[in-house]
Simulated scan of single mutants.
Amino acid sequence: MATVNPWKKFIGLLPGGVRTVGDVISIDTAASTSVVELRNGVQITARGVDVAVGLKAFIVDGDITGQAPSLPQYDIEV
């Protein structure tokens, strides 16, 4: 059943899942996984081996989706 609630319609347009960027530390081709270090220093294991060691990768719901550009990052507290 379709909803007429505008908020629910808006939420339905947004992409779901967790998205982040991290540096690829190592690759395990046998398991098709990579160890990625996130910006906060936490290391995670992500599925995919498409990005080389030393480069940044986009990670969506634990899957490496592609190479991310190496752009400067700034943390600003307000």
Rank of each mutant, 00 (worst) to 15 (best):
Q67W: 08
V35N: 13
T65E: 15
P6M: 09
G66V: 05
R39P: 08
D50Q: 13
P6V: 06
A68D: 05
P15W: 13
A30S: 11
G17M: 02
A46I: 03
V21K: 03
A57C: 01
F10S: 07
V36P: 06
V51T: 10
I11Q: 15
G41V: 00
L55W: 07
Q43K: 06
V21W: 01
F10K: 04
A52Q: 12
V36G: 04
R19Y: 04
A30F: 13
W7M: 14
I27V: 13
A46Y: 02
G22V: 04
V49E: 15
I25W: 13
G54W: 06
G48E: 11
I25N: 15
A52S: 14
V18K: 14
G62T: 07
L71Y: 06
E37A: 01
D61F: 04
L13G: 08
V24Y: 07
D23Y: 05
R39W: 03
I59R: 14
G22T: 05
R19F: 02
I44F: 09
V53Q: 15
V21Q: 03
I25R: 06
G62C: 09
F10L: 10
K9W: 08
G62I: 07
S34I: 01
G48H: 10
V51M: 14
S34E: 07
D28K: 03
G62N: 12
V21T: 12
L13I: 03
Q67F: 09
K9R: 11
P69G: 08
V51L: 06
T29Q: 15
D28H: 04
V51P: 12
I27D: 15
V60H: 14
A57W: 03
G22I: 01
A52P: 11
G41N: 06
V53R: 02
